[in-house]
Amino acid sequence: MIPTLVTARPEGRGRNGSGLISMADFLQRIAERGDVEAFRKLFQAYAPRVKAYMMRQGADPNTAEELAQETLLTVWRKAGLYSGEKGSATTWIFTIARNLRIDRLRRELSWVELPDGHDEEPSPDALPDELLSQQQRKLRVQTALATLPPDQLEVVSLSYIEGLSHSEIAERLGLPLGTVKSRMRLAYHKVRESVEDLK
């Protein structure tokens, strides 16, 4: 079986291998000494993708660009809250973009905090192990997504990328709400299985 999603990635898999660590490093440098060059790198890497995300969420190109700028500004402002053990830089930045989108495009409160918000069990484990397992986890999830049946991947994408609620997905696809939810559940079970043996 071919993980079509993974091979379809524009920059291929290589970038992932080192991407996580160096992007996290840039964040660290921003946090520690307000490193403007590190920020430029981060901006180049993420702003175009955040813009794409905002457009898929229904923003026009201009608004999407503003929101991308604002997302990265928030990254600059909050870099001190980022902690490498708790998630990849991409996850963190994606979460900031997601919350900003809820706030600006929907004018609602996002309610759910950034992933570093309330982890009561700070991990004393060795950092390299943590990073390795993060990295593995990410690759496993990508592969699991790539092998989902198209109808499951479709509802997951509509939820994550187009920002549709379950009811809106049901309406868009002309499906009963229960079917949308069960496809979401099935997709998640497959993803969870794929990472179960990792810590």
Binding site: L5, A8, R9, P10, N16, A47, P48, R49, K51, A52, Y53, M55, R56, P61, A64, E65, A68, Q69, G87, S88, T90, T91, F94, T95, A97, R98, P115, R137, K138, V141, Q142, L145, V156, S157, Y160, I161, Y188, V191, R192, V195
Partner: peptide, 18 residues
């Protein structure tokens, strides 16, 4: 775990130049 799903789909987006 679910945050990884969002991240994976986000990374797959074709970037739009700023």
């Amino acid at each position: 775990t679910m945050e990884h799903i969002g991240t994976a789909l986000f990374e797959k987006l074709v970037p739009v130049s700023v």
